[in-house]
Design a protein around this nucleic acid. Sequence first.
DNA 1: TATGAATGAGGGTTCATTCAT
DNA 2: TATGAATGAACCCTCATTCAT
Lengths: 207, 207, 207, 207
Amino acid sequence: MPTKKPIRKKPQVTAAPARRRELLDTAAEVFAEQGYNATTVRKIADHAGMLAGSLYYHFDSKESMLEEILRSFLDELWGGYDAVLEAESGPRETLEALVTESFREIDRHRAAVAIYQKESKQLVAQERFAFLAESQRKFEKAWLSTLERGVAAQVFRADLDVRLTYRFVRDTVWVAASWYRPGGQHSPEEIARQYLSMVLDGIAVRE
Amino acid sequence: MPTKKPIRKKPQVTAAPARRRELLDTAAEVFAEQGYNATTVRKIADHAGMLAGSLYYHFDSKESMLEEILRSFLDELWGGYDAVLEAESGPRETLEALVTESFREIDRHRAAVAIYQKESKQLVAQERFAFLAESQRKFEKAWLSTLERGVAAQVFRADLDVRLTYRFVRDTVWVAASWYRPGGQHSPEEIARQYLSMVLDGIAVRE
Amino acid sequence: MPTKKPIRKKPQVTAAPARRRELLDTAAEVFAEQGYNATTVRKIADHAGMLAGSLYYHFDSKESMLEEILRSFLDELWGGYDAVLEAESGPRETLEALVTESFREIDRHRAAVAIYQKESKQLVAQERFAFLAESQRKFEKAWLSTLERGVAAQVFRADLDVRLTYRFVRDTVWVAASWYRPGGQHSPEEIARQYLSMVLDGIAVRE
Amino acid sequence: MPTKKPIRKKPQVTAAPARRRELLDTAAEVFAEQGYNATTVRKIADHAGMLAGSLYYHFDSKESMLEEILRSFLDELWGGYDAVLEAESGPRETLEALVTESFREIDRHRAAVAIYQKESKQLVAQERFAFLAESQRKFEKAWLSTLERGVAAQVFRADLDVRLTYRFVRDTVWVAASWYRPGGQHSPEEIARQYLSMVLDGIAVRE
DNA sequence: TATGAATGAGGGTTCATTCAT
DNA sequence: TATGAATGAACCCTCATTCAT
């Protein structure tokens, strides 16, 4: 009897990572544009120039594609965020760095960010996407502590409702993914600077 | 375009408007919570204590429920906005009034606002929902002109990228619908005031 | 807000048991004839004069149909068996009654018996069909103890390999479902009698 | 009927018969354990340590594997049976020899026998598997004539329903394949002897 | 007004099979 | 000989919708 391979073949994780990335990028684009639920597997396959069934050679399911898209986005996001946080700069510099980093991520992973914005609320309920909740907790902690440090250091206004401000800044930054177009006239750093100018100093003229 | 269904009793428009509103509110709640696509007619019916088919006595289709929810929300929204705009106050007062009015709408139509935020981008492509596009145009015009008036009157900073600021303020206001809970500790006016304080004056301490 | 019904509507268990039975009988027939795996939901629907999707108004899944078919068969089978066992007759009478009862079940549930014969081995592995394993245990115990009582009472031959005999008798009885046609020339009791004659006395002429 | 695939290299019949046998044995094992329909080509390939597509270098199709498994089993079976029948022994000796031969086949081709038992009923309908029907006819004739000779010679009981007895003996013998494990404590000859003892003399004590 | 039952289109997924390498 | 990638048909199932009662 020939050699048995008890280990199930999993092209999903090992082989041809380049093709996988291509397909995931395609899928992310369609998910972002049409919404996850409204996106049929056939549409993804069409965009990729193949038949629906062929996707299943590369991925286990539509859901696993979504998971991988979000996971790799969050991995990279936290790469950037952790670097910022470990620098232990002052609260204002940290906030500026986080915002700038966020816009860079939007620039690099626009589709993933848009998907995250629109779908994560429904997804966290599923065990498979529990990692989204964990990321949210870390995210909240990073921002809240920065804001609190700033208030304590009298860099930010003392009368801020910190939680409200957190939501305000968070939403302000991330919804940008819904209208941002990479390669436009504004670089992510430029947009970050303008955002920061508004958030930090407001839009009213100083008297 | 000719009428598609000539012979059709339409209890949809005549009878028992109270029951209709109840059902629409129920539907809006579910749409907001689960997303339009992910919401099955059966789920709505479950929440309403009836069977899926029974909804079709009241409404033509799932889509027509959505349309009616959005239309009645926008009708009321524009009632408020138009009153503000017709007052022809100064740019800062107008901006404050628009923001406050927006939070009041969020308070009254939280579900509809959330649906609008999440779905309108896909919906505008359909002829049936063309009214969304029109509303967006009016909306943009109202805000942009207010901001421009403010810059011209040196009430707002001269170095603002007005379009960017528009998006910034718009998003800032409306995404609140995703986390706002009516009956919470903050009244809509209170939230509006805090938002305005941040938007107008920024979060940094004035030196 | 209208009354909510948190309890999911389950026509599957409550309503219209007559139609359910009809459909289950149809399904059982097709499963028995073509095998469970080879039976498509469409084939069942065709036989029932409806579309494939319509079956899902009555049942959760193809598998749940199979489960219900087997469950109701085993329920009835054990109704008969338990009556026999509780009578606590002598081993020979018990064996005769069990065989007769078995043929009656084959007569009444030919399709279910055939399905059971062919599929149960694969099915027991699934948690959903764990009740099959339990039934098998009870079944084995009933037969083995009857045979052992008979050997002890010197009603059955002392040199029997009881486990082998058990398999022999069990198989002999149940495979009959694969060729038995209800309404044929032999009544189940008649077939039982002839089987018993062979099993008890053998086919060779007594010298 | 004209040849369907005129240009087709057929390594299937020429090359490396040893590898073919290995693969067929593997396939038979999986077919027997999981059922033909439930067995995917991929499962077979996994067991053989190769990829699904690679099997098609050796075989035309999944069905052709099944055909070859059954054909080679029946060829060998009839080798044994024909030898027994040509010996033209007395009916009792013939019956004993047929049973013994059958258990030997089960010992040698357990998987093939199990497949045959479970699938042949559906398969005979296909032209490709018409050879199964022919084998069944020969089989029935061999057993029936032996039983009839035995009744005529007053070796078997005169009151036997010969067709019923045939089915009884046939099933009794072959279903053993579903539980028989080669290399167990009972040799095929030993099992045959015990079976014959039951079939010929019954399980009841002689008075 | 609402129910129960059915329709029919389509969606995600599986799988035998093909074929260039 | 075997692999990797793709095909295409079919499958189970969902769901908006219809309609007689």
